[in-house]
Nucleic acid binder design. Structure first.
Lengths: 213, 213
DNA sequence: ACTGTAATGGACTCTTTGTACGTTTATTGA
DNA sequence: TCAATAAACGTACAAAGAGTCCATTACAGT
């Protein structure tokens, strides 16, 4: 009796599959409990025996998908590491995993109403940055696609803002701007190997971050 | 008659203010049209004279906020630029703008059900990365807070995945992994000044990105 | 075969949505 | 200032979905 009743297992599985199927063919927000149970071949009341609402069901679906996302990072951090190789390989695993679950990640990251706002903001920012690049002669021969770099920078800004607000703004705007600019231009290694900065950051104001951390 | 009827102006303003006020005190999803019009001192039917649904109203609110977000980037890209200074200043303007509209950006980026999934994924990834850092002796003396760097890297990964899916996967997973690793470790300048790579990317595989771009 | 539990098949209330339409009030321009 | 116009009011209505309830039926484990 430690394990789950097969009927429960079947019911939940059916509900999960039904919701995924429905999400792929219509907007998540417009899906009703009715729709889900109908597709699953169950009664509506049965749904409430297992989940409180749509979101709770969705979360169980996403959880299993997301578990695979960080799987590649579990690699033992061997102290004899080549930083880049490690990151590259875990990123590769990640993109492969996303590729084989593309439709689900489309749901998580893109299709939703609310997410589209963020997406729109990111594309908006990226467009500004690309405009920026195109006017600068130094940027003519990028070794990476402009679009990728612009979206990278926009993504960094949004991620930093999100984190900052989540944590109730533990640093000042200027400290955040400094970290954001350093990271987006020099990457994570700027934090590990600060001597890198000297090369091209003549204009940088004195760092005020360390004193707070 | 070219300008808007003052009654319309007032009504829409009242609706906007009502929605913002309500979002600050409860979950957006649970807010009803009833709630909004009640708070605004209007009849429910009046709402439908101006907006089709809640989302349409929300978008008008967000639009004006987001316009201020990219305002700082409009600075003329003077060719005599110091890259870092420009980015720092536009980022500073951005964070100041977010600071003074914090509650609104909380809505856009954080409070929503669907967004919380992404946030959760980012924090999940960030936690993995931090774990990574803590086991690595080289990471003991970071010049930036570990938490910031970890969230930065997680944000980059998610932004790259989002963009990749939006654009229907125009590059292979290995190309994406390469760009993602390069950008997150070396930053945007790796694309402009590729000679930077040689310093610490001994293990990097030959780039396969340029051929596609 | 017996027992406990899951799922069924209805039914019911409550909330919200979207629309309709005649009435009242505010705005504009002549 | 007054008439024409349009917005907002007040109220009502149908449709849909959420959430709960309960007696009945189907099924899994011992």
């Amino acid at each position: 009796m430690n394990e789950l009743d097969p009927r429960v297992r079947r019911t939940r599985q059916a509900l999960r599959e039904a919701l995924v199927a429905l999400i792929l063919e219509q907007n998540y927000d417009t899906i009703t409990i009715q729709d889900i149970t109908e597709r699953a071949g169950l009664r509506r009341a049965t749904f409430y025996l297992h989940y409180h609402d749509k979101e709770e069901l969705l979360l169980t679906i996403l959880q299993s998908a997301v578990d695979g996302l960080t799987g590649g990072m579990e690699a033992p951090p061997d102290t004899e590491c080549l930083m880049y190789e490690q990151v590259y390989h875990s990123d590769l695993k990640m993109f492969l995993h996303v590729e084989s679950n593309a439709s689900l990640y489309h749901i998580i990251l893109g299709r939703q109403e609310t997410n589209q706002i963020i997406q729109r903001v990111r594309m908006y920012i990226a467009a500004h940055i690309m405009q920026y690049f195109e006017h600068d002669p130094k940027m003519n021969a990028l070794s990476l696609p402009v679009e990728v770099v612009a979206n990278y920078m926009a993504g960094v800004k949004l991620a930093m803002i999100s984190w900052w607000l989540e944590k109730d703004m533990p640093y000042s705007p200027s400290q955040m701007a400094e970290m954001c600019a350093r990271l987006s231009l020099d990457g994570a290694l700027t934090a590990v190997l600060p001597e890198f900065r000297a090369n091209h950051l003549q204009g940088a104001p004195a760092s005020t971050v360390e004193t707070v951390a």
